[in-house]
Design a binder for these strands. Sequence first.
DNA 1: GCCAACGTTGGC
DNA 2: GCCAACGTTGGC
Length: 151
Amino acid sequence: MTYWLFKSEPNCFSIDDLEKVGTEPWDGIRNYQARNMLRDDVKMGDKVLFYHSSCDVPGVVGVCEVVRESYPDSTAFDPTSDHPDPKSDPDNPRWFMVDVKFESKFKNPVSLKQMKEMSEFSGMRLLQKGNRLSLFPVDKHHFDLVLALGN
DNA sequence: GCCAACGTTGGC
DNA sequence: GCCAACGTTGGC
């Protein structure tokens, strides 16, 4: 089993939105490196840290679980969606998504600032300079520590 | 709004 | 294959 961190802008899709709907496709990934991991490495039952980016307090706000492995991201074919890509052919899809299910919302969200201040998190991909990937694997000990801080 | 750090595109 | 121009991400 692999642990992950998925980023989302809360004014677009937040942990509260996920809690309301329960299960949701993680669509709109339009970066090849992220796509490859989403398509090939994100597996059923994997645990995901839900991260709020580009907001007042960036940080991890909860946990969700992968409940469906990669399938074509149909929003790419839909010109009215938030992220259409006319270059993705339904017969040979370029982009993929997975389904995630809400698991928990932290009582104490773990802010990016807080994580930067703790030496335990040094080396975590989230804190690496220039990291712009919207999803990446997280070491188990980092995952466990975020949970301990958040709950 | 600014800007660093990427990633992508397209001419050559 | 190189690289300039442009676009995006995301913290601050």
